[in-house]
């Protein structure tokens, strides 16, 4: 069964849901499933069923009274937070408006974050500056930045992956970086990395792919990638003088 259609298969959904609810998933897989749940009602239903199957255990086991000062802390945090981050569905405006709003907000936030991150991330010791910057996000939150440094001499172009400070120490296994061509939407594999900061040299072909890409994305699979199910995805930003030579 191809692509996202797999997640409409009740049997597969049930297996994934049992693994999710009983926490037999890596953080990366868990986040991917949470995103898929929002798109696939069958999967969301399967997770709800497993959650309800297992929840009685927590009803039966002993409760523990939390510290007395906890509720005042929560109340203060709620009042400070106000309605930040809340986007309840609105009946008067259609889903198209909502998605447009989300898309515009996400792009604006990504650009602002990219500039801020680029300014604050430690730069390489060399005087070479990045030609290319891609803030890659998950659920609208930028989690890592990929910078592209032109090669000198030719053929030594480098990609640098820097994770945000909030990123948890990874036990997620290898991740795979891809460039999406801005015209054909074909994907070109750029290399692999893990939960740590990392840099590597790319071939001339790969650098050209970066130069012609509209966005970069990260998949958990070496053999395939799909923007719809990418772990992290973000636009390419061209910085300063663009050089396509690698």
């Amino acid at each position: 069964m191809p692509g996202a259609l797999r997640y409409r298969d009740p049997e597969l959904c049930d297996q994934l849901a049992s693994r999710y609810v009983t926490a037999r998933m890596t953080p990366l897989s868990r986040r991917r499933l949470e995103r898929l749940m929002r798109q696939e009602p069958v999967l969301e239903q399967a997770v709800a069923r497993w959650a309800d199957r297992m929840a009685p255990l927590h009803e039966a086991l002993p409760a523990e009274t939390p510290p007395a000062e906890l509720w005042p802390r929560i109340k203060a945090a709620v009042q400070t937070a106000g309605d930040d981050g809340i986007s309840p569905p609105t009946a008067s405006r259609g889903p198209l408006f909502m998605w447009r709003t989300i898309a515009v907000t996400a792009v604006a936030a990504a650009l602002a974050l990219a500039v801020a991150l680029w300014a604050h991330f430690p730069q390489r010791a060399e005087t070479v500056t990045a030609s290319y910057l891609a803030p890659l996000s998950h659920n609208g939150v930028v989690e890592l930045v990929v910078s592209g440094y032109p090669g000198s001499p030719a053929g030594k172009a480098q990609l640098v992956v820097q994770w945000s400070r909030r990123h948890l120490p990874s036990d997620e296994g290898p991740l795979y970086l891809w460039a999406e061509d801005q015209r054909s939407q074909t994907l070109v594999y750029l290399g692999t990395f893990s939960g740590q900061n990392h840099h590597w040299t790319v071939s001339r072909t790969q650098w050209q792919a970066v130069a012609h890409s509209s966005r970069l994305l990260v998949s958990p699979d070496r053999d395939k990638a799909d923007p719809a199910t990418a772990e992290y995805i973000g636009p390419c930003l061209q910085l300063g003088d663009w050089q396509e030579k690698g």
């Binding site: 709800a48 959650a51 297992m54 929840a55 937070a81 930040d84 986007s87």
Partner: peptide
């Protein structure tokens, strides 16, 4: 504290497909 703040901000994401208690436990 983080959890109840998340509930405050994301309660609308509870789809009602299962119980709210199951959702909270997860």
């Amino acid at each position: 504290q983080e959890l109840y703040l998340k509930v405050w901000q994301q309660a609308h994401q509870f789809g009602g497909r299962g119980s709210a208690w199951g959702w909270l436990c997860v």
